[in-house]
Design a protein around this nucleic acid. Structure first.
Lengths: 202, 202
DNA sequence: ACAAGACTAGACAGACCGGTCTTCCCAGTC
DNA sequence: GACTGGGAAGACCGGTCTGTCTAGTCTTGT
């Protein structure tokens, strides 16, 4: 057993698994060019993997897309959580989400929120919609938790407002090619937060 | 000349022109199912028009898409302007944009902002991006004008914040299937507006 | 050494795409 | 009644798509 673990670990170090290579290729191509426009052939070629392997690991393109979106969700969550460790006060942590967003916006190759883009391309009822629901559920609960920890009475209501800013910021950063949308959203979030706190104090 | 005008007017009354039928069909199909998913054949069949006629009126599918988006922009503008006539005070008119949005969200067949969806499907640099830039430019100047008329000192800054809410509201209404996103956005807009007015009074 | 499974390479099928082109019909005009 | 031009119908072309299948190679455990 240890021998096998070492063997696979060494193989993973030398070369990522088929699944990882496929996910990496799918992420690069789907995110930058769109899901519909990128065909399976380009993904497998970029991954250096046979087509049959793709259909062995994932059953269809739809499932590959779903895995790509779920991986995006995980990476986004990790990035935000890492950024939030830099902040101490609850208010800073709440607004820090938009700082993390601004950081994402300035990364090379940024092309908007992958989930919004994928939603526009996918037909309703498919696995893409499920992945998007998971993502949006996480964002909302994150905002709700941060608002509650900051002492906001109507944490759920503020979270819904901040989620709108979060989505709108992503849309603007992509369509207007304006990374400063994050700072605009942060300023608006600060005003909404302060107003919500003031209401609670009354 | 008058005879010809009467003839074309009568024909238009009896049956919309080829261009109008194509635009109507494109609007129904592109908006509800997506641009990439719907092929030219389905559009011409729905419009009751020959394929050659489409390529006579519009040079390509891309141009048809552009015309479809521009028509959407016009209809949205008319709808919002019509709604705003119901409001008197500048504050009510500013927030009335989100009332108009809420009305759009509850219309049957609502499927999100057509421009955001189209942007996700189109490749950058194409005519779709130009149509989207026109739309977004109009939205922003509308918010800026309304904010200035309401006496907001930093009308441009508030307009950018409200634009984020406007976009986020459209995204949420589509992806969460929640038309109440408009009322959430309206409440947030009211808070941001009141905060902006208060800052100006200091 | 050898068997078994994982993986690659690529042909193939069936469907659909945007766009062009031909053919035919039919209403309006002299 | 002959002519004409706009539009309808749809065949057709080259290309691309997803997904399947075959055949061969390489690795790994025994």
């Amino acid at each position: 057993m240890p021998a096998k673990v070492n063997a696979t670990a060494a193989a993973a170090a030398a070369k990522p698994s088929v699944r990882e290579r496929l996910l990496a290729a799918a992420d690069e191509l789907f995110y930058s060019e769109g899901i519909q426009t990128v065909g399976i052939d380009r993904v497998v070629h970029r991954a250096g993997v046979a087509k049959a392997s793709l259909y062995n690991v994932f059953g269809s393109k739809d499932e590959l897309v779903q895995a790509y979106l779920d991986a995006r969700t995980d990476r986004t969550r990790e990035g935000i959580e890492r950024t939030l460790t830099r902040f101490r006060t609850p208010r800073e942590r709440l607004l820090g989400v938009f700082d993390a967003q601004g950081q994402i916006f300035t990364e090379p190759g940024f092309n908007g929120c992958a989930h919004i883009t994928a939603s526009a391309e996918a037909q309703p009822g498919g696995p893409v919609e499920c992945a998007n629901a998971r993502y949006r559920n996480w964002v909302r609960t994150m905002f709700t938790d941060l608002a509650r920890e900051a002492g906001v009475a109507d944490s759920e209501g503020l979270a819904r407002q901040l989620h709108l800013l979060y989505d709108g910021s992503g849309v603007s950063a992509r369509m207007d090619r304006d990374p400063s949308a994050a700072t605009t959203a942060r300023a608006a979030a600060a005003a909404l937060f302060d107003a919500a706190i003031k209401v609670g104090e009354e």
